[in-house]
Amino acid sequence: MNPRVRKRLWVIATYVVLSFFAFIYLVPFIRSFIASFMTWEQASAYPPQWIPNPFTLINYVKLFRLELFPRWILNTAIYAGIIVAGNIVLTSMAGYAFARLSFPGRDALFSALLALLMVPAFITLVPNYIIIYRLGLIDNILGLALLGIANVSSIFLMRQYFLSLPQEVFDAARLDGCGPVKAYFYIALPLAKPALGAVAVYQFLGAWNAFLGPLIFLRSPENFTLPVGLSFAFARTMWTEYTPIIAGSLVAAAPTILLFIVLNKYLIRGIAITAGKG
């Protein structure tokens, strides 16, 4: 076969495969989005229908009749905000110290922290519940956030980033009069914007989507985050129709989806930094 024809065929085959998978990964979102504007009667019709008729916002209206729904959005935002802020401050400091300062036991401590990535969350669940309980922070977003404000993968990401900066810049700063702490504020932190951005986005996604932690550490419905709230409110027995659940799911997922679509290049590249540490 002519190599040019062969190449053309290969490209076409690639597009076919890529598009097939894109269909599989996207269709649940598309289908949900369309159905959220349908009556339940139409959304549950067989075979599936694709054009909302009548076009209705009733599902969203019903959703916001759930008194606590706005409250859950707010709670999730507060939780995510604390987690992002905490991680930016704490893990950039720790990552900098692990990467650029020397102190006794540094490598051992870092390995010990890294090993926590391999420890399943379930083993620490009950003890942490007891600790937070003893601190009187059960049913409090602060108590929940305390568990996640110094994420080990964030520390790892920050450390790798600071290691990748040239030593000479820090030497120059040393000669120009920066001690270890000054160098953190004047040199390391301003240079770490890309890594801080990555930490912020990953931690935001993680906090916004978290389920197990909020489920256990938050007790009263008005303190729930979105995933916990939705998982209870949308217990199937409570609803005769499913379209408001779909609408609620889409509203809850919208921030992460939008964030991802805006930052996709950045995010996909960022994974490259964290991956492969094993």
Partner: peptide
């Protein structure tokens, strides 16, 4: 003493002005 490094070690996040000013600012 002042040192000029092989890679120059300029601070990438500062302008030329800020780079030159930095040791004075620290002092």
């Amino acid at each position: 003493v002042a040192m000029v490094f092989q890679s120059y070690a300029l601070y990438p996040h500062m302008t030329v002005y800020q780079n030159i000013e930095f040791p004075l600012k620290m002092a």
